[in-house]
Design a protein around this nucleic acid. Structure first.
Length: 283
DNA sequence: ATGTTTGTTCCGAT
DNA sequence: CATCGGAACAAACA
């Protein structure tokens, strides 16, 4: 669910919608715990909304106070009034005002794996440093990506989901990127040469950008919606994720549990790559 | 009813 | 030390 494109969509819409608003009130629902001192936010003004990896970063005019929201799997951020507060997993209600109008900012999360945290600049810096390459940043390069991959002794699927290597990919976009690059999820990173890594880096950027254009993916469970409650459309363009037949060669898609996650790949278009003996000895 | 589902962290084993 | 596999977090659905 929320991977880079979904979080990007939410953060950029939020920026347009709530920047310049004052936080009137912060109210955890039930015994939901916000980490950090959220009382500091009251009467502060929202100045900007950005994204770090899959985190939504809400900056305020307080120089040392930042609100960070991570949606994990089932988190939602909404600026519309929920129809049913008790039935929609509402965990935190913020009230924002600008001029004379008051609008809600809702954090909802069915499974409560998500996090709402209030942190300072130093912690924000730490958060930033946890993550690897931001794939859609202009400073990201295939060289850096290849170097990061070489440093790990694991399979490519693992590496793509490892946020300290590349930030923002999750199971869906990683699957599609590997498919477009013709790389099988179980390929060892050390068996991937520069050309293949470079191709994979391009396809990763491609699917992430397409995801952003389509405003994210909404799976059949409908958990992901944007801040207005609208579904994304990237699921209509899934390449291999949740597909039955390969869109290229029509071969039956293989569904397999890899690293505890459902993985889809085309056995023909994503062939097994044998690690050469010289490399194997290094493992 | 048990298995499955997106993300992350942490622990013990390898 | 790097990595893995599994568990845990909580909830709904087939």
């Amino acid at each position: 669910m929320p991977e880079l494109p979904e979080v990007h969509t939410i953060a950029s819409d939020l920026k347009k919608h709530i920047a310049g608003h004052t936080i009137l009130d912060v109210e955890p629902v039930g015994n939901y715990k916000i980490s950090g001192d959220y009382s500091k936010l009251i009467n502060s003004e929202i100045t900007n909304v950005t994204r770090i990896a899959k985190n939504i970063v809400i900056e305020t005019n307080l120089p040392d106070t930042v609100l960070v929201i991570h949606l994990a799997m089932t988190g939602r951020v909404l600026v519309t009034e929920p129809l049913d507060y008790s039935g929609e997993w509402v965990r935190v209600v913020f009230r924002l005002s600008k001029d004379t109008t008051v609008i809600p900012l809702i954090f909802s999360d069915m499974r409560m794996f998500g996090k709402v945290t209030v942190i300072n600049r130093e912690e924000l810096e730490k958060l930033q440093n946890k993550y690897g390459i931001e794939p859609i940043s202009p400073t990201a390069t295939a060289d850096k990506f290849f170097e990061a991959l070489k440093s790990k002794n694991t399979i490519i699927k693992n590496a793509l989901l490892d946020q300290s290597i590349v930030a923002g990919l999750g199971n869906i976009y990683a699957s599609d990127a590997m498919f477009l690059a013709g790389i099988r999820p179980e390929t060892m990173t050390k068996a991937i040469n520069y050309e293949e890594a470079s191709k994979l880096f391009e396809t990763a950027k491609q699917v992430l950008k397409e995801g952003i254009e389509k405003r994210g993916s909404t799976l059949p469970d409908k958990m992901y919606v944007d801040i207005f409650g609208n579904e994304g459309k990237y699921q209509e363009n899934f390449k291999i994720y949740m597909q039955k037949k390969c869109p290229t060669c029509k071969t039956g898609v293989v569904y397999k549990r890899i690293q505890g996650r459902g993985s889809y790949f085309c056995p023909k278009c994503q062939p097994i790559k044998i690690i050469e003996a010289s490399q194997k000895s290094l493992l």
